[in-house]
Structures are given as C-alpha cells and as structure tokens.
Computed example of a mutant assay.
Amino acid sequence: MCFMTQSAHRTVRRQHAAVRDDIGELITRRPLPGTTLEQLDPFLFLNHHGPQHYPPNNRGLPFGPHPHRGFETVTFILEGSLAHADSGDHQSVIETGGVQWMTAGSGLVHAEVSPEAFKRDGGALEILQLWINLPARLKMVEPAYTGLQRDDIPKVELDEGRARLALIAGALGGETGPIQSLTDVFMSTLALSAGARIALPVPRERTVFLYVVDGEVSVGGTAVNPHHLIELEADGDEVLIEAELDARLLFGHASALNEPMVSYGPFVMNTREEIQQAVEDYQAGRFGGLEI
C-alpha cells in the first residue's frame, strides 16, 4: 500500500533536539518541552527512556505512585516490559510493542514500574511517554485506561512493505486503531526500512507530532536527525518521509486547542486557580489511593 499523490508536502520549520536528562540510572532524553519549544499544541511533553540494558536483580523503573489531572499520557513500550497500576483499579503488564493510553481527566494516582520478572532477570528497555492536553470541556472527564499488547494494534503496510505503521488511534488504509481518542488524535509508530518512501495524509489545520527515535530519514526533502522532534509548517496536506537507513519514528497529529494552559508538575489546567484546586484535591485524597 502506498499513499503517494500530487498533494503538497509539508516542509520542516525546525528540528528540536532531545536534551539528555537522566532520571537516576534511567537514560532519559526530552525534546518537549525544551529550550527551543515549550509545547506543540496539544502535545505537551515527551520523554525518551533508553535504550539501555538492565542487569539481573535491578531496581527497575523509578515511577512509583504519583498523581495526574487534566491531560492524557500515552506510553510506548518499544522494548522491555512495563507494569501499570492506578487508583481507578486498572492494572496490566505491557510487553514489547505495546502501548498504554491513560486519560487522567479529573485525577488519579498511577504507577509505571518494572514487573518483578524484569527486575529479577534484567533485559533491554526503551520507552517513550507522550502527554497530550485535554480541552477545558474535558479536563474533568472520568479517568480511563487502556493497555494494548503488540498484537492488539493493527499494522498498515506501506511502500510495498518497506514501511510498517502501527495504528494506535485514528484511521488509515482501511484500518482503525483500537483507541477511540476523546479529541480525535491520530497516533502511530513507524518502522521504515532503508529506501522506504511514504507520504502520510494530514489535514493542513492539524498539528503534526513527529519524533525520530533512531535511524536516518528526510522529511519533506530535508534531512532530519535522530533524537529530534521535527516541527513542520502548515504548508501541505501530506508528510513525506524517506529513509536512508532503517529508522523508527513516532507519528501523530491532532487539532490545536488554542486555549490558555497552566501547568504545575503533574497537573495541566487552564487557570492557576484550577491548579491550586488540583493540589488541594490530591492532598485531600480525592484522587484515590494506590499501594504497590
């Protein structure tokens, strides 16, 4: 399957490097927010953990119980395994190729830690976590969680099999992703073999989120760098991606909210008063509790 047409290709506005910011022994790079880009409305935050190899009898990931309100988190387990638990009684262990999609909404406490088997045996680990803002009308929606294993996510073959898109949310090529986004977000991961050339449709009014995990690619004819967030102009209705070497990318798009945003740690709201209320609600135990 191929999506090559005569449509205009978006051009690169700027490349934003992921800054190294390790969390203890966990290798971490963060392109958003960064010194050159605060947010890419409605996309707020991306952490790239790893790749690295944990030895046997390790302490695992450091993300014990903590609160969120006002946005969604999407966690991509590129390699390794990840255990999730939250105060809404959702629990899962997601393996390589899987995804966790959590709507924090009105507020919950969650933890993302390594399963006991991973801590005992060790292994390779690489994880991405993306935060997506919610509009004011949905800030206080009921929290929700979906855990997807690799086989739960449909794959769209592109460019005669030289590219493979794992479709998490949205529709493409006759397939529909298993996540029904509250705000019509399209979200996927891409694996391209050297020589792949694809053009993915995106309406001009939508914000594109494109992060190069690794490999060597060009976007709209411009060579781009691994570990960079690629900010695109709104000058076309397709994103042209060509792979010089094998590559992996995070690719999504969504409508900008164009609303005021105030963030404080794990809370993202529209006003300072709402942030203060979130802090008070959490301290009063209104998010529920979680013990792991």
Rank of each mutant, 00 (worst) to 15 (best):
V113H: 08
N133L: 02
D214W: 13
D214R: 12
H53A: 08
L128C: 06
N270F: 10
D159K: 04
T11S: 15
A117M: 07
E79N: 13
I275A: 11
T28D: 00
D235F: 08
M269A: 11
Q100T: 01
Y54S: 12
H16Y: 09
G34I: 02
D152V: 01
G147I: 07
L190E: 07
Q149N: 11
L200V: 13
L290S: 04
E175I: 09
I292M: 12
G107K: 05
G122S: 14
L134A: 03
G285T: 07
L125K: 03
H66A: 01
A18C: 00
F186Q: 13
E126C: 00
L37N: 06
L26P: 04
L290W: 00
H228I: 05
Y54D: 11
L82Y: 12
Q149I: 05
G252K: 07
I94K: 01
S188V: 07
E273Q: 13
H110L: 08
Q283A: 09
M1T: 09
N57T: 11
D86Y: 06
A199G: 13
A223V: 15
T222N: 09
L182S: 03
D152K: 05
P260K: 10
L26Q: 06
Y264M: 08
F76G: 01
G105M: 00
G60T: 11
L44D: 03
V141R: 08
L32G: 06
P135D: 02
I77K: 05
Q52N: 04
S7H: 15
K155T: 14
L200D: 15
L128H: 02
A163L: 05
L165E: 09
T189F: 04
D21T: 12
P260G: 10
F209Q: 01
D151T: 13
S7R: 12
R69N: 03
P56C: 08
P65E: 07
L229F: 03
G161S: 15
E273F: 02
L44W: 06
V141K: 04
I241P: 05
S218W: 08
G98W: 04
V99M: 02
L249M: 01
P55I: 11
G265P: 02
L190P: 04
L192I: 00
A256Q: 03
E274I: 05
G161H: 14
R286C: 01
F71C: 03
D246P: 03
S263Q: 15
K119H: 12
Y282R: 08
E72D: 01
G34L: 03
A247T: 00
E242G: 04
W101G: 02
R137E: 10
T96V: 04
E112P: 07
C2F: 12
A136S: 14
G195D: 09
Q149A: 11
G220Q: 05
R69W: 10
A243F: 06
T11W: 10
L229I: 03
G60A: 13
R59I: 11
V224T: 03
A8K: 14
Y211W: 12
N225Y: 15
A199W: 07
P178Q: 08
G50T: 07
T103W: 10
R20N: 10
V109N: 10
M269H: 07
R248N: 14
E242L: 07
L46V: 08
P31A: 01
